[in-house]
């Protein structure tokens, strides 16, 4: 039965990717990574320039996953309570309190979309951290549970005015940080500019099939998937070597141009980060119709699951994206398996 479930769900995943690829073109790799995160039950942080389609991408996924969907915009005056409730004067002239975005859908909340997360204050980040890690929230003398919730967030790194850098502890709660780049293909660039269907995002997102996945079954299926896809002793050793290399890259002969390797890494990947990497690698193996993880599965998710967890010396933080990319590529090139 479980094999049939694995096959059926793989079909759903392929449908999901096909649907998303219809409306977000030239982003096959981010779409595969977000699909992987959904089946790994991990939160996703998208990073990219303004207007490259981050929000459209997340809205498209939200439509396909189904369930409750809530969205909030990150602003400098956003406070934690704005996520929990809001107050207003009713028609009766009396003050009323109604549930905020987090509570509005109750346990059916499947996607909480935090737009421009780096514009929100650290207090908001702090609340979000707990919700992301524990999927619970205490409000109105009651404990609320969000068992199916995934947080999709995006940020742009171009603007630095009135933004707050997401601390490393908060970054670590996200399973993946996925860069969204403008496609380099001329045909795709042309269609994005001249094809009018891409001009109206709401209409565009409405064209894709809704509720491709059953959001309330994803947790159970994810547990089954993680149990079914196995990792051999050789692969385990390989993953451990990768982990060690993130902590001490110079021990593996990894070099980054213009960087003092002995001073670069203050903290390598966390145990949580590595376990998330392996969860994602298992999903990647399953999506490729395998029941064992290969090093190539780890490679597919290595950058997106590890890069944002590395803590560099402050002097190198300004070049984080570039250095992290070169460092992780160097690690993959340096660590052999078997």
């Amino acid at each position: 039965m479980s094999d049939k479930q694995l096959t059926d769900w793989r079909q759903h995943a392929q449908t999901l990717e096909t649907e998303i690829n219809k409306v977000v073109v030239g982003q096959q790799t981010p779409i595969r990574l977000i699909t992987t995160a959904i089946f790994s039950r991990g939160h996703v942080l998208l990073e990219g320039d303004v207007g490259v389609g981050k929000t459209t991408l997340l809205r498209a996924f939200t439509r396909c996953i189904g369930g409750g969907y809530q969205r909030i915009e990150g602003t400098i005056d956003l406070m934690p309570n704005d996520l929990v409730y809001h107050t207003y004067l009713g028609e009766d002239g009396k003050p009323h309190v109604s549930p905020g975005p987090l509570l509005m859908s109750g346990e059916n909340l499947s996607v909480f979309f935090f737009n421009e997360i780096n514009r929100a204050r650290p207090q908001v980040h702090s609340l979000l951290l707990r919700v992301m890690a524990e999927r619970t929230l205490s409000a109105f003398n009651k404990e609320y549970h969000f068992p199916h919730m995934l947080v999709f967030a995006d940020r742009n790194q171009v603007e630095k005015e009135e933004t707050f850098e997401i601390p490393s502890a908060a970054r670590d709660r996200f399973m993946m940080e996925i860069p969204i780049l403008v496609p380099d293909d001329n045909a795709i660039m042309e269609s994005l500019v001249f094809d009018t269907k891409f001009h109206n995002v709401d209409a565009l997102v409405d064209t894709i099939q809704a509720d491709v996945l059953q959001f309330d079954q994803l947790n159970a299926f994810s547990a089954l998937l993680q149990a079914k896809v196995e990792a051999s002793p050789t692969l385990r050793q390989y993953a451990l070597n990768l982990w060690r290399a993130t902590k001490s890259p110079s021990d593996y002969g990894v070099k980054v141009s213009g960087v003092d390797m002995n001073r670069l890494v203050l903290s390598g990947a966390s145990p949580r980060g590595m376990s998330m990497m392996m969860r994602a690698a298992r999903v990647n193996a399953w999506l490729n119709n395998r029941d064992s993880v290969l090093p190539e599965d780890i490679h597919a998710v290595f950058h997106s699951t590890v890069a944002h967890r590395l803590v560099f010396s402050p002097v190198y933080e300004m070049r984080r994206t570039e250095i992290a990319r070169e460092l992780l590529t160097g690690i993959v090139n340096a660590v052999a398996a078997p």
Partner: peptide, 19 residues
Amino acid sequence: SIVHSAINATAKYSVFSDN
């Protein structure tokens, strides 16, 4: 393992089927 090592030494990086 021996052949893997030789491939890696030839390429001067760890070679997998994806690279």
